[in-house]
């Protein structure tokens, strides 16, 4: 058919009048929604970051230049402390989630009886919310209702262990809870990519006498590289921005020990009326995330064929 051959190169086969407008009409709702409720608020945040805007001190309102940023860099120890904790939190979480997620994906990619059910079960915490995770792990950590009490009943440990109450253990207690619902994300994404590796590659490697480890290092890992880079980046951004769990589990405490930068901003937004300074904090976090993402994609040579 002449028509179909003419159109294979170009997806548009016929052009009714007004066709040039069609794609714009189709994306219009998405553009309006995102400009109105993402781009405009973001722009207003950047605008307010350059203003003095404090509800309690209206006489000071006006252009402030980079004053808010100067304050943030030199006069606010909590900014640096929360940023440092964010880096530690994201690094530990994403690193551990990646390792366990990869192991899990490799296991449930094998063929065995009960694979379907096992997959469903190990993936299930993926759908659980941060607040629900907190609810569950509060039960598990509490000295009277938690695992520690039943272990103590058996005489294995002392009574009264309360991991959330001590500054020495609260970090790892929070890490474990977040790990519980974070590992499935990596497992699902990496399993999807594992399934796209042609089996012939493994067979060829086996014929050549490659051991399990060699096959993993020389076939599996190179194939997974882009998926790993992309999923770790997405997860870093997500874990950085995620406040639900820490907000409800530790409230950022004890004594700001588990306050991430977004948690600090959210608490500022809820309590203080200094919108100018809060906006400067938001802008700083946005810039940090964007530069980190660009640098990460560059350094990891994302998409480059090896």
């Amino acid at each position: 058919m002449a028509i179909s051959t003419a159109s294979t190169a170009n997806h548009r086969m016929r052009r009714p009048r007004g066709a040039a407008r069609t794609p714009y009409l189709l994306i219009a709702p998405a553009v309006i929604a995102m400009v109105g409720f993402l781009v405009y608020p973001m722009a207003s945040v950047i605008y307010y970051s350059l203003q003095n805007y404090n509800v309690t001190k209206p006489w000071d309102n006006g252009f402030a230049g980079l004053d808010n940023f100067r304050r943030l860099l030199f006069e606010d120890p909590l900014f640096w402390q929360s940023l440092g904790f964010s880096v530690r939190w994201v690094g530990v979480e994403v690193g551990l989630q990646l390792v366990f997620g990869l192991i899990l994906a490799l296991i449930v990619n094998e063929t065995f009886v009960g694979r379907g059910l096992s997959r469903a079960l190990v993936f299930s915490p993926w759908a659980v919310s941060g607040v629900l995770t907190t609810g569950i792990w509060v039960l598990l950590y509490n000295p009277t209702t938690g695992v520690s009490r039943y272990l103590a009943d058996l005489g294995l440990i002392e009574y009264g262990a309360a991991p959330l109450a001590h500054s020495g253990t609260v970090f790892w207690a929070a890490v474990l809870a977040e790990l519980w619902r974070g590992v499935p994300f990596f497992a699902i994404l990496l399993l999807a990519d594992l399934q796209s590796i042609p089996r012939e590659l493994y067979e060829a490697a086996s014929v050549d006498g490659a051991t399990r480890r060699q096959r993993f290092l020389n076939v599996t890992l190179p194939h997974l590289k882009d998926a790993i880079v992309l999923s770790t980046l997405l997860r870093c951004v997500w874990e950085f921005n995620n406040v639900d769990l820490l907000y409800t589990l530790t409230g950022g405490g004890p004594a700001h020990a588990t306050t991430t930068l977004p948690l600090y901003v959210a608490s500022k937004a809820a309590q203080s009326h200094d919108f100018g300074y809060g906006s400067a904090l938001t802008t700083a976090a946005f810039l940090i995330l964007t530069f980190f993402s660009i640098a990460y994609l560059r350094l990891s040579k994302f998409g480059a064929k090896s």
Partner: peptide
């Protein structure tokens, strides 16, 4: 590109401006 960039906008930090809107 615009859609990709929105992925970096922290939801927690849009609270003030969204509340205003």
């Amino acid at each position: 590109l615009g859609m990709l960039c929105t992925q970096f906008i922290p939801g927690a930090m849009m609270l003030i401006p969204l509340f205003e809107i």
